[in-house]
């Protein structure tokens, strides 16, 4: 049975799906979290730090949703403030210095819209990540694990390889927001989800992502081990290839990857 785009939207938002920290704890060894953007504060919507992946030291960064209301409040529903993006970029630059690859797990409804976020330059923070990631002299792999919402997702997604889970979505805006702007009716989100072409299958067809990571029947929450094995395989294959590339070529190919879109 085919799953409709709207069903995928709902599936991608299910709180039982594996979150960023699930991937970090199951796929990496000795994760050591590092906090703060060094300018203003610590944003718990983004988790970042150091770990070993298959015995290689890496920097790992994840947008983190909560499982319940309390966790979601602490994580701000995985909607980062500028501090979160600045922390992510700080950790990426650190990875560049120590020649570590970077792995990002994307899962956000979007960057936070609020007074503080605007006062502290949400636009500037995202823009700096886009430019900064493009010039980063170390391999970067991003995986959209559930929800890839707008510039807030792209700010961790300017990478050498971008993958999506089978039922993940990645879009310019939430279908609800899209419907309220274009159809003047947020209730038309289902139609929007279809028109927007936000599924992994659509994005792969467009050449925007490099591959789709299969999920077990019914979705990732039904079998964590199944998903972890497949993500591990994708990370391993791509890292092996990317760390062998001369940096000049890596950067040239990363530029071309986005240039042709």
């Amino acid at each position: 049975m085919d799953i409709t785009p709207w069903q995928k939207v709902k599936l991608a938002r299910m709180p039982v799906r594996p979150t960023g920290l699930d991937y970090i704890t199951k796929l990496f060894d000795g994760f050591l979290e590092l906090h703060g953007d060094r300018f203003f504060g610590e944003d718990r919507a983004i988790v970042g730090g150091l770990a070993f992946f298959e015995e290689i030291p890496v920097t790992v960064i994840a947008q983190q949703k909560g499982r319940n209301t309390k966790e979601n409040i602490a994580r701000n529903f995985s909607m980062p403030h500028p501090e979160g993006y600045r922390k992510a970029l700080r950790l990426m630059k650190q990875a560049e210095k120590f020649k570590r690859p970077v792995i990002c797990f994307i899962d956000t409804p979007g960057a936070y819209c609020g007074i503080g976020a605007e006062e502290r330059g949400q636009g500037e923070a995202i823009a700096s990540n886009l430019a900064g990631m493009m010039m980063l002299k170390t391999p970067v792999i991003s995986i959209v694990i559930s929800e890839g919402g707008s510039g807030g997702a792209l700010a961790l997604g300017v990478s050498d390889r971008v993958y999506m889970l089978e039922h993940a979505i990645y879009s310019i805006l939430s279908p609800e927001g899209f419907a309220s702007i274009l159809y003047k009716d947020a209730a038309k989100a289902e139609q929007a989800a279809k028109d927007m072409k936000l599924t992994a299958q659509d994005l792969y067809k467009f050449g925007i992502i490099d591959g789709i990571i299969p999920e077990p029947p019914g979705g990732a929450h039904n079998d964590y081990e199944f998903v972890m094995d497949r993500v591990r395989k994708v990370l391993k294959e791509n890292l092996e290839e990317l760390i062998r590339k001369p940096v000049d070529r890596l950067l040239e190919e990363r530029y071309e990857k986005f240039r042709r879109l």
């Binding site: 886009l130 430019a131 300017v158 879009s171 072409k197």
Partner: peptide, 22 residues
Amino acid sequence: ARMQEGIFSLMQMAKVSAAAAR
């Protein structure tokens, strides 16, 4: 972003920022 061009509009942000960075 131009809503009607969906994810392609989003990717223009990366593309133009990349060219500006170069």
